[in-house]
Write a protein that binds this DNA or RNA. Sequence first.
DNA 1: TACCGCTTAGAAAGCGCTTGCTACCGCCGC
DNA 2: GCGGCGGTAGCAAGCGCTTTCTAAGCGGTA
Lengths: 354, 354
Amino acid sequence: MTVTLADVAARARVSPATVSRVLNGNYPVAASTRERVLRAVDELDYVLNGPASSLAAATSDLVGILVNDIADPFFGIMAGAAQTEISGQEGSGRAGGEKLAVVCNTGGSPERELTYLTLLQRQRAAAVVLTGGALEDPDHIAAMAAKLAKLADAGTRVVLCGRPPLPGSEAVVAALAFDNRGGGRRLTEHLLALGHRRIGYVAGPPERTTTRHRLESHRAALAAAGIDEDQSHVTVHGPYARRSGYDATLELLRRDPDLTAIVAANDTVALGACAALRDQGLRIPEDISVAGFDDLPFSVDAVPALTTVRLPLHEAGARAGRLAMGNEAPPPGGIATIGAELMARASTAPPRKG
Amino acid sequence: MTVTLADVAARARVSPATVSRVLNGNYPVAASTRERVLRAVDELDYVLNGPASSLAAATSDLVGILVNDIADPFFGIMAGAAQTEISGQEGSGRAGGEKLAVVCNTGGSPERELTYLTLLQRQRAAAVVLTGGALEDPDHIAAMAAKLAKLADAGTRVVLCGRPPLPGSEAVVAALAFDNRGGGRRLTEHLLALGHRRIGYVAGPPERTTTRHRLESHRAALAAAGIDEDQSHVTVHGPYARRSGYDATLELLRRDPDLTAIVAANDTVALGACAALRDQGLRIPEDISVAGFDDLPFSVDAVPALTTVRLPLHEAGARAGRLAMGNEAPPPGGIATIGAELMARASTAPPRKG
DNA sequence: TACCGCTTAGAAAGCGCTTGCTACCGCCGC
DNA sequence: GCGGCGGTAGCAAGCGCTTTCTAAGCGGTA
């Protein structure tokens, strides 16, 4: 019922081998023959059998992009950029060397992360791009390192994007990490420069690298400014979600009503924080300043516009895509840190005198 | 080098057939044998060869979800819900009947849409979910219908989610369409009830069904209220992007400074519109009302909170996922319309007396 | 005891493609 | 005029798995 290579071969009166070579274009075929084959392909509306092809050639055109939360533009932007870079290979006519770039949503679950990796391993994926902060659980790190090593062994190119390098894993083609520490430090320094001293912090889930890096750099900046009291009572952890920002902010206000600024783990959380503050009748930034992280597209449209740290998500994703395709030389040592730029906007201002 | 079924069979001292049957669990195998096999699998760290398996069984565990823009939460939410429903199959131990649910980003390009479909066809995908509004170009519709028919022929289950049914295509398992018309009508009626008569409209790209349905229902509501002047000079088209909302709003203001309300094609565009209005020194909703569409998560946090139309994106995505897996009966006729609910919030108010 | 049927395992034939090797053809150069 | 060579095409052997068909072993029944 379905058309096979052999059918095409019969129609073009050549051998299956020749058809295969025309389709793959990696072996000389006379122009006249090629044309005859191509015509047969068109007439029969032939579609290559991917599994058969992958099996015989021991390679696949699947490229997986893993994200923590597909509904979050933070990941969407990176994934989209990577996917464009990977799929956009050749504008040249026939769907030849086309890669099938697909994104897989782990939902932040370590098990699903591993499961997806196994599934991609099954498919003998050509490459895998892992985005977003990693879990700090040692077991999971070990499992991931082992898995990635196995993937690399099987010829899959592994790229990390916006994720710190895996300790001891040379399996990876390249790791592009965001400078969360530098960005976090600059953000807090900005607040300090404005005169803030009592700063609440709405952190992400404690077990994520991103959370820790951002939080640690915040505290380091405070310490460097001579603020060395224990910060734990003005820190609340929660998921990277709007709701979490809302709830955490109410909690912080309860713990210390004299806070003059709130730093959020990311922009989404910051938006929740703003909502909570407004609901408490506080004005931003007159009564209290708010800052986020990531500079997602909506942040500039918040009212007031959100002070945040810009991460070049698009650029990083695109670069990861190119690395995955082997279209760009890996950075020295396979590790690159991507800058994070402070975007000082209207949501932060000097604290009220008093 | 890589471990194959035969290696496992040798180690467990059974035939390859038996190992296959243990792994697929669709044939009786004695408990003791099964255990021996499973142990061998573990010890050798065996990973099934997907392509080989797909080739032999003539089926695959790939499920594709096509989206127009992965960086847009509108799609992210649907895709995430669908993916969860598809992957979340069996919590039961071993990675057995696991489906590989992946999302493919077409970027709104018809060619890439078709390309992805071909790629999925190659892989003999188990199912395909198409999300988001369709292009109205007759050629593309015909090409899509043909492609989907071929996919269905090859056993791939096709589900449309948030996309109008394809004319004459019985290839499709089910089509879940949003009630864009009903939502659009209610939104405009809300504005009319508030007393607005001069309403600007920032529409999406003219060639998309979503755009047309929303715009037509808006105009129909106006006409029903006796406002039957030509609306074209207070309508501006543009992509579904923040920037487009900003620019279009400035243009509308230029064309008619007396507009008392602006309706945007979706929430993202509405945010851009708000920014433009603010930059012009206009207050929302005192000077001018603004409404969006979709009710994305950030809309409630806008200042003022955005009046919009809620689309149950998560629910629709989940349902599409279930339909794709055959875990839910298709609606009668294969077509279901999903309600759209007006969310009247602070960004709309009666126009200033004037 | 002989027969039957049930349960469980193995043998082997592909699934549709790729690719190393061989074979053929026409032409050049000596 | 003949050996050789570059350029093309075909043969056939798998790639690693699934699945049909066959067979072996076992207990139960007549």
